[in-house]
Structures are given as structure tokens and as C-alpha cells.
Simulated assay, not measured.
Amino acid sequence: MRVGVVLGTGHGEKGTTGMVVDALIVRMRERVEIEVDVICTDDLVLGPSCPACLACMTAGEQACPNADNASPARELMDAADLVIFATAVHSFTLSATMKRFVDHFAYLIHRPRYFGTPAILVSTAAGAGHDAALGYLTTAIRRWGFHTAGQLGVNGPGLAKAPYRAKVDRALDELAATAVRAVHDGGEPAPTTSDLIGFRVARLLVESGRSDGPVDAAYWDERGWFEADWFTGAKVGRVRNAVAALVERRIRTGIENGSAKPYTG
């Protein structure tokens, strides 16, 4: 089994997040032989933020000014049977370095490729914020094709307390078993209603952007996605699909008529 690790923390493998991931890897190795590739997002040198030039979507990912620097992470994800995305929690959400990483792969929302590859999500914090950080990552990587097999949020200072550490150890044991099982069992889970809505919204975006750049549309044309209900052959529930179709029609009508409302909370 080949495992890729994307470590979104400025402290690298020596920090709390890295140590929790290492403890998970140790437990996975007790169950199966694995190769591990690790990328620390700070080492990718992606600049202070994504330039938001949209070149990755209109001209292809190679047109990104940071394409060469981002390529090691792309190669890691391409080669992995399972990817562990790990982030420190900063100000109640994921770290800036992990957000920068996600932003640089925004084209994968338009051209997803990792269907059938499970992901494990890990966060560490001094306080709260696991729900926001892990929730965001779950949504983001699902748009890239990954499906989250398991997740764990750990309180860093709490690890010094024996009762809490024992609970974390048990959670890591369970998560390691879940990760190995996810790869062994294989397959792609049936899409949720949210997944199906995401598919249809992505299709709208690609359709509307066809004249701006052919890359996204060509990718969808090659895979027959414009005529499909979902990206893969996974079973699509009829009720869920009907709900997604209704949402799509409302969004499409709002766009065409200019009647879409701004978000006000």
C-alpha cells in the first residue's frame, strides 16, 4: 500500500500534527506493509497565496505560475492508494499553509480525478476548531474526487494527560484499521445529495466557461460527463438525483434571468 501524507503545518513532521500522523502510520504498519511519501505544504514554496489568475482552469494546470512547485504534491496524490491530509487548527479553522495548498489545486474542482481513492483527515489544535477545519477539508477534497474514510481531531496540550492520551491512542488504533480497510475494500461510495448537487454545479461552471478556455470542457467531453448524472458508475439514488436536478434548474434559471440573489446570511 502506498500512502501519501500532505502535512499542512509550519512545524513540519516534528510538530504535534506530524507526531499524530506518525503515530497513525506506525499503527497502519502493524497491519500492512506500506510505503509513505510526505509533503510539507510549506516546503512547496507556493507563495503567500494563490494568484487567482484562473490560468489553471482556462489554460490547464501547467499554466499556473507555481505549477513546478506544486507538482511534487500532485505526483504524491496521483501515486497514492490513500492520502492523509493533516492540518494544524489556526483561529478555529485549517492553517494558512494548508489553505494555500488547497487553493493551488482549485482546478481539480473543475477536473476531478481521484475517485475511488480514500482519504484520512487529521487535525490538531490547542482548543476548538476541528469541526470547521475537517469539515472544510472534507468538502474540498471531495470536489477533487477523494472520499473521506475517517477523521480525527486531537487536542495537542491534552496529550500530556494520561487519560486523554489513552483515548487518542484508541482512536488512532481504530483510524488505522479504518484506513487499511478502506484501501483493501476499494470502491467508490454512492454519491450523497450534496455530491450530486456539486456535480451539477461544476457542470454548469464548465459549460458556462467553455468559451473562455477549452481545457475544462474537453476534460468533461472525453469522459462523457455532460450526459451523465455522476462522475463514476457508482449507483445514483433516484430521489437524491431528483433533488439535485431541481436545485440545478433553480440555479440555472437564476443565472439566465439574472434573478439569483446575493448571499445575505
Rank of each mutant, 00 (worst) to 15 (best):
R113M: 14
H90T: 14
I251H: 05
C56G: 08
A140S: 11
T17F: 00
A23D: 10
T97L: 06
D173V: 05
V21A: 01
W225E: 04
A125K: 00
V236Q: 08
N66P: 09
C40R: 14
G60P: 03
G18L: 00
P118W: 09
R113V: 13
R143I: 13
L7R: 04
R100G: 09
A218Q: 11
K261R: 13
P51Q: 08
T193E: 13
D37I: 06
D195I: 07
I84W: 02
Y107P: 10
R113F: 14
R111S: 07
F231C: 03
R250C: 12
L137C: 08
S194M: 15
D195P: 09
G4W: 04
G237M: 02
R181M: 15
V36H: 05
H11D: 08
W225V: 01
M28G: 04
G254I: 02
G129V: 01
V21N: 01
C50M: 08
R113P: 15
I120T: 02
R29M: 10
Q151A: 15
H90E: 12
H147K: 10
M98W: 08
Y114I: 07
A177D: 11
T17A: 00
A228Q: 06
G8E: 01
L54I: 15
V32Y: 09
A245I: 12
P48N: 10
Y263W: 13
R100P: 12
D37N: 11
L108W: 05
F101Q: 03
G129H: 02
M1D: 09
A52L: 15
G129D: 00
M98E: 07
E33N: 12
G186W: 07
F226D: 04
E174F: 10
E227C: 09
V83R: 06
R100Y: 11
R165Y: 09
W144D: 09
L134W: 02
A245Q: 15
E33D: 13
R238E: 15
A52D: 15
F101C: 02
L134Y: 05
A88P: 12
D78I: 11
